[in-house]
């Protein structure tokens, strides 16, 4: 078992009222090594809160998150950055590349923070770049790239640390259909090579590339679908069906 999420709860209290919002209630699931999970829900469903807790950017009110036997909700503030650096990879919807660095250096960033040598960084990049199709972009700067290219660079940056889990927050939200499809296919390929991926999304199409889909509403996980042997299109139909019937969604 790679990751165990046990009875997670998160309450928010607004500053001026005593009303408590339950962002997460009794969220409980497990993730195996090599899984590709999509967490689906509408905005306000609590999916981003869940991701933030898994990313150690936020702490739960109750419950534990065990990664490889370690409760990551108990890690001290001072060691959190290092923990993230060594164990987690992030892909954001708006790419979050630094404008002041070129593409190569953007990808190197986490390794530089981890004090790896240039030779080591370079050899990891040589391995990664052709897979992601970014070999000829390395000397460019972020503003010269299209959205799809930027997102592939962001993936390279998250994979170069060889993370235990790749966390993706609406990675296709800022991309058009074709680029989204390319990106999701890329995720499938990376996953096939053994990378565990946990993706938060509101799009059924994006979720249909995952192996398992968790549905979240009002802070609770109340349904899940396994792909089994279905292809993307069939799985997409199942997901859409589940959404309309269960979430009462669009």
């Amino acid at each position: 078992m790679l990751l165990e999420i046990n009875h997670l709860e998160k309450d928010y209290r607004t500053r001026f009222s005593k009303e408590v919002t339950h962002a997460l209630q009794d969220v409980d699931f497990k993730v195996d090594q090599g899984e590709f999970i999509a967490i689906m829900g509408e905005s306000g469903s609590g999916k981003t809160t869940l991701l933030n807790i898994l990313a150690t950017l936020d702490k739960p009110t109750k419950g534990t998150v065990i990664l490889n036997g370690q409760d990551i909700t108990k890690i001290k503030e001072s060691s959190l950055a290092e923990f993230r650096l060594k164990n987690l990879g992030f892909v954001f919807q708006d790419f979050n590349l630094l404008d002041t660095l070129n593409i190569r250096d953007n990808i190197f960033l986490p390794l530089v923070l981890d004090r790896k040598t240039y030779t080591e960084m370079d050899s990891r990049l040589q391995e990664l770049a052709p897979k992601l199709g970014i070999g000829d972009l390395l000397n460019k700067r972020p503003f010269e790239l299209s959205g799809g290219q930027k997102q592939r660079v962001a993936i390279a940056r998250s994979l170069i640390t060889k993370p235990q889990i790749l966390l993706a927050d609406e990675p296709t939200a800022a991309l058009d259909y074709r680029n989204s499809e390319d990106l999701l296919t890329l995720f499938e390929e990376i996953n096939k090579e053994g990378q565990t991926i946990l993706m938060v999304t509101h799009s059924a199409n994006a979720a249909s590339h995952a192996k398992r889909v968790l549905f979240i509403k009002d802070g609770r996980i109340f349904h899940q679908l396994y792909r089994g042997n279905k292809d993307n299109q069939e799985f997409n139909k199942d997901i859409s069906l589940a959404m309309t019937s269960l979430l009462g969604g669009d």
Binding site: E77, A81, N96, R157
Partner: peptide, 15 residues
Amino acid sequence: KSYTILQEVGMDKSQ
């Protein structure tokens, strides 16, 4: 924005 990104990538606050 740069500093938010750096924190997300794995630079700690004091750094």
